[in-house]
Design a protein around this nucleic acid. Structure first.
Lengths: 215, 215
DNA sequence: AAAAAAAGTGAAGCAAGTTTCACAAATTTA
DNA sequence: TAAATTTGTGAAACTTGCTTCACTTTTTTT
């Protein structure tokens, strides 16, 4: 008769799988993809290197799962914040603040799933993730523009700029040399920047081109 | 008597060195660090792999030179634009636009020297480069704030956000799947975003926290 | 409890790319 | 031009890290 896994066994296997994913995520959070070698993941999960390949056909596949898992969670949180009642400003700021705060807790992870280059296979998965991400912000931007709360602008570009702005502003502090500024202030400054960028009335274009006031 | 290089020979050596650096830059511009293997660099420079090591002690050293060379040029251009007479707005916009336009011509290169992860040695060099970069923007931001032209803000964070915003907005289009939008419009949108972010009057904070107008 | 099947191990295989080195070619000195 | 020195070559050694596989251990079936 065909082999049949007992429930206990099924649980143990599922647990192993989960532990592998968590180990990978932890290592990526600690030091980016670089740190997350199969050997390291296996060790952290308490398994042998060979065992990993019972659960994932390749390293790239494992990373794709870690990535899409993390992005799915993150987007769900953001979508929930953005769907709440409130002005577009309020909802955008809440989303940016929430994301920034969480990213500060694991900046390497945030960086890895936003920007760190990887195998073509992982890269392909990321393009989808980024789209999902960007769409969340585009939603609220488009609503704000439609209602007249925000000035007319390219929501596509603005969404990308927002993601880039806080990636850069948050990830830079990852570099070990930079001493960390006060987190609250940092988050507040980022939120301010993004808020002004999308919601602030455009400053007079004249100022941009005008020659200097000669003294 | 001690061996003495003829002028002709000196020139040839200098030319080789130059050609190596240019070959590396070209390859990085085409496809990031990934494409720039020693073998590829050597082939592009018309030399053998071994010869590279007569000019640079290691691959990392070569990359550091390529990087700092490129950043030095770039910063010089930006500094020049920012030192011109004009309002802070005008000068900031000119700098952002100039950088964005140039980055569009070689987005991989821009990405590589702004964000692409690399050996620790290269990474260390980049931290210095980024500082130099960020400082250029900080100069004009600080002037704008001091003169009251820009609202009070963290120029440190704002400079990082600007760099991040256009990195993200420009580099995303590097992904082969994304069809390129009109370059002029893209640059204009980025300049707008950054300009509103730093120069626009802060939108009323009330809007950010207020509950939704119940219908 | 024995047989069959699956899960787990970790050392060896493999791939990709950097670095070295014995040797060849070119350049300079005498 | 011969000897000495430097520059250039490219195949081989080395490194790092993913993946495989023959074998052991565990689990399930009979």
């Amino acid at each position: 008769m065909a082999y049949q896994r007992s429930t206990l066994m099924q649980e143990r296997l599922a647990d192993n799988r989960q532990r592998i994913v968590l180990a990978a995520r932890g290592l990526i959070a600690r030091g980016g993809f670089r740190e997350a070698s199969i050997t390291a993941v296996a060790a952290a999960a308490g398994l042998s290197t060979g065992a990993i390949y019972r659960y994932f056909p390749s390293k790239a596949d494992l990373f794709v799962e870690v990535l899409s898992d993390a992005v799915r969670r993150e987007c769900a949180i953001l979508r929930e914040l953005i769907a709440r009642p409130g002005t577009a400003s309020a909802r955008l700021c809440a989303a940016v603040e929430s994301f920034a705060k969480r990213a500060l807790e694991g900046p390497h992870l945030a960086y890895a799933f936003i920007a760190e280059p990887a195998d073509p296979e992982v890269e392909a998965a990321r393009i989808l993730c980024r789209q999902e991400f960007s769409d969340v912000f585009k939603t609220v931007l488009a609503e704000g523009v439609a209602s007249g709360e925000f000035p007319k602008q390219s929501v596509e570009v603005a969404a990308a700029c927002i993601v880039g702005a806080f990636t850069e502003a948050l990830v830079r502090p990852v570099a070990p040399t930079t001493r960390r500024v006060d987190d609250r202030k940092l988050v507040a400054a980022i939120v301010d920047f993004c808020h002004r960028a999308v919601a602030g009335p455009s400053p007079p274009v004249a100022a941009r081109r005008a020659p200097p006031p000669r003294v």
